[in-house]
Design a protein around this nucleic acid. Sequence first.
DNA 1: AACCAATTTGCCACCGGTGGCAAGTGAATC
DNA 2: GATTCACTTGCCACCGGTGGCAAATTGGTT
Lengths: 344, 344
Amino acid sequence: MQKQATINDVARIAGVSKRTVSRVINGSLSVGDTTRTRVEKVISELKYSPNTQARGLASSRSYLLGLIYDNPDALYLDDVQRGVLEVCSNLGYELVVHPCRYRSETLLQDCLRFMQRSKLDGVIVLPPVSESETLAQALKESGSAYVRLSSVALDEAKHIVVSDDRAAAAEMARYFAQLGHEHIAFISGPQRYKSSTERMEGFQLGLSAYGIKLQPDWIIEGNNTYETGIECARQLLQAEEKPTAIFANNDQMAAGVLKVAHSLGIKVPEQLSVAGFDDNMLASRVIPALTTIKRPVRQMALLATSKLIMSIENNDKAASNVAAKVAPTLVVRESTARVAGSSD
Amino acid sequence: MQKQATINDVARIAGVSKRTVSRVINGSLSVGDTTRTRVEKVISELKYSPNTQARGLASSRSYLLGLIYDNPDALYLDDVQRGVLEVCSNLGYELVVHPCRYRSETLLQDCLRFMQRSKLDGVIVLPPVSESETLAQALKESGSAYVRLSSVALDEAKHIVVSDDRAAAAEMARYFAQLGHEHIAFISGPQRYKSSTERMEGFQLGLSAYGIKLQPDWIIEGNNTYETGIECARQLLQAEEKPTAIFANNDQMAAGVLKVAHSLGIKVPEQLSVAGFDDNMLASRVIPALTTIKRPVRQMALLATSKLIMSIENNDKAASNVAAKVAPTLVVRESTARVAGSSD
DNA sequence: AACCAATTTGCCACCGGTGGCAAGTGAATC
DNA sequence: GATTCACTTGCCACCGGTGGCAAATTGGTT
C-alpha cells in the first residue's frame, strides 16, 4: 500500500510551486514551455494523479455524472448505460447510477440529495422520471447541469434528447394498414406516462389516415411488463371476436402476446400479426422474431452525455447545437404478415 | 441556487463547535444527549448534509463503491446492479460503474487508477475480470477493499462470493440422464474462463455417474452469445447424427439452439431437449420456455456488497462470516422431455 | 540605461470536513 | 472543601488541491 504522490511532491521535485503544477494539470495557458515540460516529466515519473476529492473541494467539480432512473427494463438500461459510459470514459468522467421511485413523495429530495451528496457535475434522467417537471425545475433552480431523455420535447434543446415515438408508432400503423389489417388491437403502456400516450396517439393517428379506428375495447392498458402483456393478450385472444393484429407498447408485452397466441394455438403471423416497440435483444430472440420499432437508445445516450458534458464545461451554446432529436425506425421481422385472405 | 449549509452554520446556530457537530454526524459516543439533540435539530432544520468531498479528503472515505466488469450479459449485469444498489442505498453508499477490458494489457492500471481517481472505498469485481489473480493481488497490495464474484473459490472468504456452478451442471446431467438421454451435446463457453470449465466439468462428471460420456465432437465452444449459440447449434443439428439433448453454457446460447431447431423443423422438446444456464429473463420468454439452472445472481450481489461494506468498515471477521457460497438450482420448464421412444 | 507591458510564477487563504490533544465540566470520593 | 476521574467539548492543524493577487521575469522600446 504505497503512498500516493501529492501535488507537493511534484512541485518539490520539479522545483516549482504547487500552483504551477496545478496550472499544468489543468492545462492553463500561462505556463512556460520549459516549465511545463519539466513538470509533466515529473508527473509521469511519479505517476502522479490528482486527488479528485481535494480538487472537487476546491473547485466544486467532481468529474462524476449521475444516471437517474426508475425501474427500467434491464435491456433498455443496459443500452443507455453503455452509451453513457462510452462518452464518459473518453472524456474522463465516471458514472454513478441511482435508481429512484418516480411516484415517491420524496423523489425531489432524493435526487437533489443524491446530487449534492456526491457533488455530481451533472445528471442524465431517464423516462419516466424525466417526465417530472417539478424535478426538472428543481434541477434548473439548483443550477445543476442535467439532460433528460424523453419521447416528447419537454425542455430547451440543451437539456433534452427526444425520440419521436409518435411518428414511429404512426409508421407502424401505416405498415399494418398496408398489410390489409383492419381489426387491430393496441396494448398500451401506463397512460400516466407521456411515452405511452405518444405512441398510442401516433398509432391512432396513423391508422386514421387509412380510415381505420381502434375500437375502445381493443385498447388495453398494460404496464409494460411481460406479465401484463400476457394478461392483456388473453383478454384479446380469448374473446369471441379477435383482432388480426396486435401492436404492443413494447417488446416485453409483445413477447407476452406471442406466448399466449402459442398456448391458444393461434399461429403468428399466419392468423395474427404481432408487433412491439424498442427492438431490444428480446425482439430478435423470440420465435417468430418480432417486427418492432427500433429505438436508437444508444445514440440517445451518446447525444445526451455529450450535451451534458458540454453544458458542464460551460459551453451551453455548443450543448444546444448537438442534435436533440432521433427517429426510431420500423424493423420488419417474422411476426407480421398480410392479413389472412387478403390480396394486395 | 441557494447555498448549501455547512458544518460551520450548524455549529454557529447550535452554539457548539464544529468538532461537536462532526461528532454528531459520525455518531460518536462522547456527545451529551442534550447537545446531540440540539445539534440534530439544527441539522434537520437547515437540511444540512455533509460535503462528501471534504469528508473524504479529511478521512479518506468516499462512500463510493465501484462495480468492475467486462462486457457482461445485459440481464446479468442488471441483476447484479440491482442487488448491489439495494444494499448501497440502505447503507448510504453510492455506486460507480466501470466497464473495462479483461484482456487488455492495461487492465491493472485502468482499475487501480479508477479506484484512486474516484477514491472508492471498495470494489466488486464480476466475472470474468474477477478471475484475474494479478488484479486481485494488486487490489490486495494497494490495501483496497474488494469482493469478487466467481464460480470457483479463488480467495479468502471475506473477499469472495462463489456460486457452485459445477454442482449445478452435474445436476443438469443427472436430470438429462434420468430422462433417458444418452446422445448429449454440450455448447461450452470460452474455455479460458473458469466459469465455463467448471460447468463443463461438472456436466461431464454428472454424466459419467450414469456411464454416459460426452463425445469430443459434441462439445463445441461458443462465446456465450446468442450468435455463437446459433452457429454451434447449426453444426450440431445439421450433422448426420444428431444429439437428443443439448446443454448450453448459458441461456443466450440455448435460445440460439431453439432458433436453429425451429428453422430446421426439429421439435423441442419432442425431438430435442434443450437446456441453458442462468435463468435470466430470456429463459422464460422464449417458446418453449427453457429448462435451465437458476443462478442466484441477486443474492450473490447482496452478499458481496454486504461483505464489502463490512470489510470497509473494518470488521473483517464479520465480512468473513457472511455466507460465501450460493447454490444454483435446476428449473424445469418446457424445453426438455423424456427421450423419444423411451419408457421410464 | 531606464521604462513598460506582457507573460510566468509564487504566496497564501480557502474549500468543508476530521483527528489529536487539551481544556472544561460535573459528579464521586476522601 | 479539595482531589480525582470520566465524560464532553473546543481549538487548531491538516487533508490536497484551486483561486486571487502580487511578485518576478522577460523582452521590446525609447
